[in-house]
Design a protein around this nucleic acid. Structure first.
Length: 874
RNA sequence: GGGCGCUUAGCUCAGUUGGUUCAGAGCACUUGGUUUACACCCAAGGGGUCGGGGGUUCGAAUCCCUCAGCGCCCACCA
């Protein structure tokens, strides 16, 4: 036989990668068929594949391949994201290594460097996705900074502006001093940390008395423009309106009353720094306070910082405390545990900063998005995320979308250089000049007199358009692609970006097209290591997918990952599962070897129990297909895989193939071989979404014998199955197990031939199966019951072993009695229940019916058992 | 502080609207087995008071209350 004994995934997978690419196998175009669309959550353009991607994209591939086999026009659009802040940070660091600072470069020069970086490192991840078998339509690959995508984003900005959803405002925003940009609330993460709470002495003006003010941020005293107390606070009420001297700064600031001050916290006195805290800013507004910004963009102190000018905020904190202490202005300090705000991308401490930014008004815009999920137009799997989603939308806040970065979509706003309060919103300079004339009646402007907004848009401001912009549906809302593919079918993503992305896509989809962007959202869990820790570079607990693939094959890794991916839960990844996946590949391969090697012998009489096995497996397959399809419907992907795994390994290999396998050297009937190949074909089709490589390979090898290929519309559907034959075979298998068990208990060899007597009604085919799988003869005979070690029960019937020369023809009395007692007990429970008036009157009719049926069954069982025992007594 | 979720076999998890054929699966484990597709294999077997307590009900892993432990999201007070 020319087929390798051990399956070698690497060779075969590479062969199929080349073939798929060459034949453009996954290309999709609008046609008459029903579309089934998935859009990839675009990974960072310069990113590399990690286990999270692996899981996420394997699931998408399973769904899309299943849809393709089910006859849909399946389209999976791939692409990458420019990831504004993350990529810019990488480029900045890279330039730093060669001694170039960002601010030394012009905007255009920096962007050129960023493109060089993108061209060098971009697209690696897409090739890695190909390697794991992802069947994307690669001709549709998009990048969020492609010219058409760029224009779409700017068009969206303009549309929102004209519809009144955008505004420019000076507010306290989250400032990332490392990337020197603002961040949206969603880009800030909080971490608990212990800090010091310092009690500083603020002297009353023209007095030697002082108030104690508690703060964690002594370095901001240069920006203090008031001290606030609660007007209800008896301790300080009288002092409102008087003045305090800010320590070191020696500035006199008013004591103001404000209800937002917590009496319980610290001393009840709050130093107010309107430029550096949202709350202080609001107190400032209510009390008409001055605003003094004491920081540079990198969070070092500016001129207001006096002798601390140009020093970093954290070093100033240490130094200023020393100085205050020396001068007797520090009363005490204590430990204080609080949450500090960190930038999601650069991990540096976020600085609240007063700044002018563009914001999207979210309340009205997002209103329909909640309804679309609550009413089920969009389904979340698992459902629990509906509540998370609801919670966010009901408390939605405006979205800061401007970023002080170069890498991204530049904000399409042009200002008059002389007076920046005058601006117009449009795509180009020439349009802008026209608009200035229309809006402000300013004529004959030249390009040098206007300037485009320096900022770019938040990355997510392009991501939220992804489902529409990949089909160019913003610039051309009625093109054939968007009309055909949108709304898309399923979105597969992580719950960590439910607000960043999922919610916003729903909002923008409704705004632009009054339609949902996708019907189902499948949230994958986080991939953790087997100890439950997050995978991270620092821990070194994140396996490299490429190494895993080399070891286990892409099919094996996919199966391994899926085995531990129960829907909605984080998954504790264990490499041994990949080994299980690899072993499964090998099992499939060897089943193929066995079937392929079956010789057809036309003289061979077809054995009737083989015919029976064919019928049985066919019905069993129908049954399992039904549950597999049901699992798919509910996005229980790993459950579908497990059913399939057992169907193939247990039912097909361990039972069916063992039954039909001919004795050594003999052949099989033509019909048997063909039926078996047909089963293999169906099983491979079912396996294809999970294990695309091996299923394609084996299928391809069968093509030489038979016209069969894994292609569209081959997915097995089933609506019903014959449960009688399934039960019959199950019963035979139970007899087989009992016989094997008997042999083991009596230290008999697996191959020993035994005669076994029975007296119930078995059909010949059941007997044939038992004989094939155990080597034992089943002989019908009247049995007596007697205490003996050589009998066993299967269900309610006794079986007696005639062993070697010794004849035992009695059933074990104890076993019979034990069985009888169990059933008598069960009968009692049922009778008690059925004679309970409350039960009969309260329980639903079907339940009562079911219980009555159970009672009948149990009564007939008892009758049979009693007869067996009676025979023993005679 | 507000919201959500979890706790079932050694591990990872199923268990639909409460109904004793519902206490399950895979892995791991124990034992026996290799000339005849596969030891990357076959076969058999052991394992759980369904987190604790209370309640509702004819009946609770499933519903309610409570306690304990774990996790997530949101907001954030100097």
């Amino acid at each position: 036989m020319g087929i390798e004994k051990i399956y070698n995934p690497l060779l075969i997978e590479n062969k199929w990668l080349v073939k798929w690419e060459k034949e453009d196998f996954f290309k999709s175009e609008p046609n008459d068929e029903t579309p089934y669309t998935i859009l990839i959550p675009p990974p960072n353009v310069t990113g590399i594949l990690h286990m999270g991607h692996m899981l996420n994209n394997s699931i998408q591939d399973i769904l899309i391949r299943k849809a393709r086999l089910s006859g849909y026009n399946a389209c999976w659009v791939p692409g990458t994201d420019h990831a504004s802040i993350a990529t810019e940070a990488k480029v900045v660091n890279k330039l730093k290594e060669v001694g170039i600072k960002k601010h030394e470069l012009s905007r255009d020069e920096f962007i050129q460097h960023a493109w060089d970086w993108t061209n060098k490192h971009g697209g690696i991840i897409l090739n890695q996705l190909k390697r794991i078998g992802c069947s994307c339509d690669w001709s549709k690959t998009k990048f969020t900074l492609d010219p058409d995508m760029y224009e779409s984003v700017q068009n969206m900005f303009i549309k929102l502006y004209h519809d009144g959803y955008l505004y420019r405002d000076k507010k306290i925003v989250n400032w990332d001093p490392e990337a020197k940009t603002t961040l949206s609330n969603e880009e800030v993460v909080y971490k608990e940390k212990t800090a010091k709470l310092f009690y500083l002495k603020y002297k009353l003006e023209s007095s030697e008395e002082f108030l104690l003010v508690a703060t964690t941020r002594p370095e901001t005293i240069f920006g203090d423009t008031a001290v606030a107390v609660n007007p209800n606070d008896e301790r300080y009420r009288k002092l409102i309106g008087k003045k305090l001297i800010v320590p070191l700064v020696n500035r006199a600031v008013p004591i103001v009353g404000d209800n937002s001050v917590d009496l319980e916290f610290g001393t009840g006195c709050l130093k107010v720094t309107p430029a550096h805290s949202e709350k202080d800013f609001e107190i400032g507004l209510r009390n008409n306070l001055d605003i003094i910004d004491v920081f540079n963009d990198d969070a070092s102190l500016n001129g207001y910082g006096m002798h601390y000018k140009s020093l970093d905020r954290f070093s100033v904190r240490k130094k200023i405390i020393n100085e205050l202490d020396e001068k007797g202005l520090l009363d005490r300090s204590e430990d204080y545990s609080h949450n500090i705000a960190l930038s999601e991308r650069t991990s540096c401490v976020v600085e609240p900063k007063l700044s002018t930014q563009w914001f999207v008004k979210m309340k009205k815009l997002s209103k329909p998005a909640l309804e679309l999920v609550l009413n089920g137009d969009i389904q979340f799997y698992p459902k629990k995320y509906v509540k998370t989603y609801k919670n966010w939308l009901e408390n939605i806040r405006d979205w800061n979308i401007s970023r002080q970065l170069y890498w991204g979509h530049r904000i399409p706003v042009f200002y008059l250089k002389e007076d920046k309060s005058k601006y117009v919103v449009c795509l180009s300079e020439s349009e802008a000049i026209k608009l200035f004339e229309e809006k402000y009646s300013i004529k004959d402007l030249v390009p040098a007199e206007i300037v485009q907004d320096e900022d770019v848009l938040d990355t997510w401001f392009s991501s939220w358009l992804w489902p529409i912009s990949v089909f160019d549906g913003i610039r051309n809302p009625n093109n054939s692609e968007i009309n055909y593919y949108y709304p898309t079918s399923d979105l597969v993503t992580g719950p960590d970006i439910i607000f960043f992305w999922v919610a916003r896509m729903i909002i923008s989809g409704n705004y632009l097209r009054q339609e949902i962007p996708f019907r189902n959202v499948y949230f994958t869990g986080l991939v953790r290591d087997k100890k439950g820790r997050k995978m991270s570079k620092q821990l070194g607990n994140s396996p490299d997918p490429e190494i895993l693939i080399k070891k286990y094959g892409a099919d094996g890794v996919r199966v391994g990952l899926l085995f531990c991916a129960s829907a909605g839960n984080d998954l504790l990844f264990d490499e041994t599962l990949c080994n299980q996946g690899k072993n499964f590949s090998n099992k499939i391969w060897n089943a193929f070897r066995l079937i392929e090697g079956l010789k057809i012998d036309d003289n061979q009489q077809s054995k009737s129990h083989n015919e029976f096995a064919i019928k049985w497996f066919n019905e069993n397959l129908n049954k399992k297909v039904l549950s597999i399809n049901e699992s798919f419907k509910n996005f229980k992907i790993s459950e579908a895989l497990m059913i399939l795994y057992k169907l193939f390994w247990d039912d097909f290999c361990s039972i069916y193939l063992e039954i039909i396998k001919p004795e050594f050297g003999k052949g099989v009937s033509k019909k048997l071989k063909h039926s078996t190949l047909a089963f293999l074909e169906k099983l491979l089709t079912l396996l294809h979404p999970f294990m695309p490589f091996i299923s394609s390979e084996i299928t391809d090898q069968i093509v030489s014998n038979k016209n069969f290929n894994i292609k569209k519309s081959n997915w097995p559907e089933s609506i019903k199955f014959d449960s009688e034959i399934i039960e019959n075979v199950n019963y035979s298998i139970e007899i087989v197990s009992k016989i094997r068990n008997f042999k083991k208990e009596n230290s008999l060899s697996f191959k020993d031939v035994l005669k076994i007597y029975f007296e119930n009604d078995l059909i010949d085919n059941q007997i044939g199966i038992v004989k094939k799988l155990t080597n034992c003869d089943l002989i019908k005979k009247q049995l007596k019951g007697k205490d003996s070690d050589t009998s066993f029960l299967v269900g309610k019937f006794g079986y007696v072993v005639d062993q070697m020369d010794k004849i035992f023809n009695e059933i074990d009395l104890d076993k019979l009695k034990e069985e009888l007692n169990y059933n008598l007990g069960f009968k009692n429970i049922l009778e008690k229940k059925l004679s309970n008036k409350n039960f009969v009157s309260n329980a639903p009719k079907e339940v009562i019916q079911k219980e009555r049926k159970k009672l009948e069954d149990v009564k007939s069982k008892i009758k049979i058992l009693e007869e067996g025992i009676k025979k023993q007594n005679n």
